[in-house]
């Protein structure tokens, strides 16, 4: 294990930003810290970078006690949400900064600095923009400069704090792909903070889901989707609906119908079932299920989403591929809604 975080806690006044967080990252691993705002993900990242001193706990990197080291001794590359480029320096100077501030004996010669800057700018596909100032670049370009600048010091770890948070959707997606490619080429252990579950699932080898300063679950994107550890994880990873029922073995019985429980054995008796819109069926009125009124059919990318309301006003959604829309899914019509399978926590 290259990074080992053990029992980290940090208190701000009366609120606990981190509350006994432990995690590990293997060399070259790509880790996402996922959580809503206030979940402690940024505090955790800053503690690893050395910008925040935790109250208790340990951070070890390749056997070294990181908490005893200053940020510069840790030599981690940090990328910020708002780029934090040096505004009075050109792109070239920005990227070279980490090399130029090294003490005399370890500072590489000018020609080598220039060479490395050129290589890095090529890596982030910004060659030709050496002489521009940050204000003359687009958001996506700025973040790529920031990435090159962080990589210039040959960091032992790359830490990214909501790196795509300030960019629009299209640029976001391009950069995601580039980041993945750069990570594969550089092979550096990378940790990035995000509140966007798609981004985390798309990029990371493993995702750490944080909530209220605690870790809810650590797992690969596949594990998170197929075996969520808590209702929080399940809800955070995608839209879902809730329905009360009675657990009976590996099934849950509702009013006049039942559904299999994916994670059976966790709850007994009265319980609440959670299920996804894409694991929900709409049947004709009178069939087993929750009686609902279909309000609208919305096009959502490759799928159609039926928005339904039960008679007591609760919102349910059901998703279908475009050519498999059931006959019951008509705006204004009545229907019976039934989960295909559910999770119970």
């Amino acid at each position: 294990m290259s990074l080992k975080v053990e029992n980290l806690a940090k208190q701000y006044g009366r609120t606990a930003a981190l509350n006994g967080v432990s995690l590990q990252a293997a060399k070259g691993e790509f880790l996402a810290l996922l959580g809503p705002s206030g979940s402690g993900k940024t505090t955790l990242l800053r503690a690893i970078a050395g910008l925040e001193q935790p109250d208790t706990g340990t951070v070890e990197f390749e056997g070294e006690d990181f908490l005893k080291q200053t940020p510069r001794e840790r030599r981690v590359g940090l990328v910020f949400q708002h780029y934090a480029l040096f505004r009075h320096m050109t792109v070239e100077k920005n990227v070279a900064y980490g090399l130029n501030v090294r003490p005399g004996h370890s500072r590489p010669p000018k020609a080598e600095v220039k060479d490395r800057v050129a290589k890095l700018l090529e890596l982030v596909q910004l060659d030709g923009l050496e002489k521009r100032y940050p204000a003359q670049l687009s958001g996506g370009q700025r973040q790529r400069v920031a990435l090159a600048r962080a990589l210039a010091i040959e960091p032992r770890m790359l830490l990214l704090d909501e790196p795509f948070g300030a960019l629009d959707a299209k640029v976001r997606k391009d950069l995601r792909r580039q980041l993945r490619a750069i990570h594969e080429r550089a092979g550096v252990t990378t940790i990035f903070v995000t509140h966007d579950q798609d981004e985390a699932m798309d990029l990371a080898d493993r995702v750490v889901v944080l909530n209220g300063g605690r870790i809810e679950q650590i797992g690969s994107p596949g594990e998170l989707a197929s075996a969520p550890a808590s209702a929080f994880v399940f809800e955070f990873l995608g839209d879902c609906a809730r329905l009360k029922g009675r657990v009976d073995g590996s099934c849950i019985r509702f009013d006049g119908f039942e559904a299999p429980i994916v994670n059976a054995g966790r709850a007994t008796g009265e319980a609440e079932a959670l299920f996804r819109p894409w694991e929900t069926e709409l049947d004709l009125e009178g069939k087993p299920g929750v009686p609902v009124t279909v309000h609208d059919i919305l096009a959502k990318g490759a799928v159609l989403r039926a928005e339904c309301r039960s008679d007591d006003g609760r919102l349910f959604e059901a998703e279908f591929s475009r050519d498999h829309l059931p006959p019951a899914a008509r705006p204004g019509g009545r229907a019976s809604l039934r989960p295909r399978r559910v999770f119970v926590f």
């Binding site: 050395g50 910008l51 010091i153």
Partner: peptide, 19 residues
């Protein structure tokens, strides 16, 4: 943020201030 970036890139206090 810029100062924080400078520090993580290895700059000391005075270097950060002057650069």
């Amino acid at each position: 943020d810029e100062e924080t970036a400078a520090v993580t890139l290895g700059a000391g206090g005075w270097t950060t201030f002057f650069s």
